[in-house]
């Protein structure tokens, strides 16, 4: 069984994603979760969980933020509410949230997601012993490492197969600071659509924006494991995330649909990647190159 997880930006998009065959939806609120396509209200989350359950699908809610005191004060109520409306699992990266979960004695399971830090089986096992039912792998891992990790742990390892990945989070408003410094009047939010280019590589284009959790910078390419999906399955990597944080509306749904089709083809043994790759390139926005990130590198390439 392959599980396809996709972010959802609204109730409507969530419904579309369920109807095309996405197994698990991923949503949240900016106050508690990191880098979501949109911050949803509790009512919206409740509606989505009901929809998902109608389809016998799951909803995971992001509670993976780096919590400051005032966040953690609000976490117990938030977790209780998520539990009460029947959310299937949450992602967590801050041990304070895990502590809170234990204290509240909720049945809400958690998936460990400390982003860049989740890089070994032993690390994940530490959290599995403390109740984690899954883990989100750092995007900086190679397929060789991912396979090794998945073989050693008893829970599913979530691997991002499509979308941009965050490579820097600062609590500082880095864009606002720069604009104030250079006396420019510019918006800094995600919709403004700003990019950075490296000094020595003007072709690079790292998306950058600010939200209430600080400044976020993304990879220059969108990850796509489309050509290697069957390889992932052989390696035991069967929990796949599609991240639509920078791809809105129907376009993301169509992208997700392509991955659903690929998944079904793999499950029925009829997958051949070429056709899917062509389609993928058609759907992919022209201003976002595709790449494989660290997946195809050797573990020793980056040290």
């Amino acid at each position: 069984m392959i599980e396809l997880i996709a972010t959802a930006e609204s109730v409507n998009q969530a419904k579309s994603l369920l109807s095309i065959g996405i197994d698990t939806l991923y949503v949240g609120q900016d106050q508690f979760g990191l880098r979501l396509p949109k911050s949803l209200t509790m009512d919206e989350i409740e509606e989505i969980v009901q929809e998902a359950h109608k389809f016998k699908k799951r909803l995971i809610v992001a509670v993976n933020g780096l919590m400051h005191n005032h966040h953690i004060d609000d976490v117990p109520d938030y977790l209780s509410k998520l539990d009460q409306i029947g959310v299937d699992a949450i992602t967590v990266g801050d041990p304070g949230v895990i502590m809170t979960l234990q204290e509240l004695n909720l049945s809400l399971p958690f998936i460990y997601d400390a982003q860049t830090m989740v890089t070994s089986a032993e690390h994940i096992s530490f959290w599995v012993k403390r109740g984690a039912i899954g883990a989100v792998a750092a995007r900086e891992l190679t397929l060789i490492e991912l396979e090794s990790i998945q073989n050693k742990i008893s829970v599913p390892l979530e691997v991002q197969v499509y979308g941009p990945t965050c490579i820097h989070q600062s609590k500082r408003p880095l864009l606002s600071n720069y604009f104030r410094y250079s006396q420019k009047n510019e918006a800094t939010d995600k919709d403004r659509g700003l990019f950075l280019a490296e000094p020595k590589d003007p072709e690079t284009q790292y998306p950058i924006y600010e939200d209430q959790n600080g400044t976020h910078i993304y990879s220059t390419e969108d990850l796509s494991l489309m050509p290697y999906l069957d390889k992932c399955v052989q390696k035991g990597l069967r929990t796949w995330k599609l991240d639509g944080v920078l791809l809105q509306g129907d376009r993301f749904v169509r992208m997700a649909q392509l991955f659903v089709a690929a998944k079904q083809a793999i499950e029925s043994g009829t997958y051949s990647s070429a056709a899917y790759e062509t389609k993928l390139y058609e759907l992919q926005p022209t201003n976002r190159p595709l790449g494989t990130g660290f997946y195809l590198k050797q573990p020793g390439d980056v040290q």
Binding site: L66, N69, G96, M99
Partner: peptide, 11 residues
Amino acid sequence: SSATNYKTLEF
């Protein structure tokens, strides 16, 4: 590990 709240310290 970016410990930023009292609960994390308690953990």
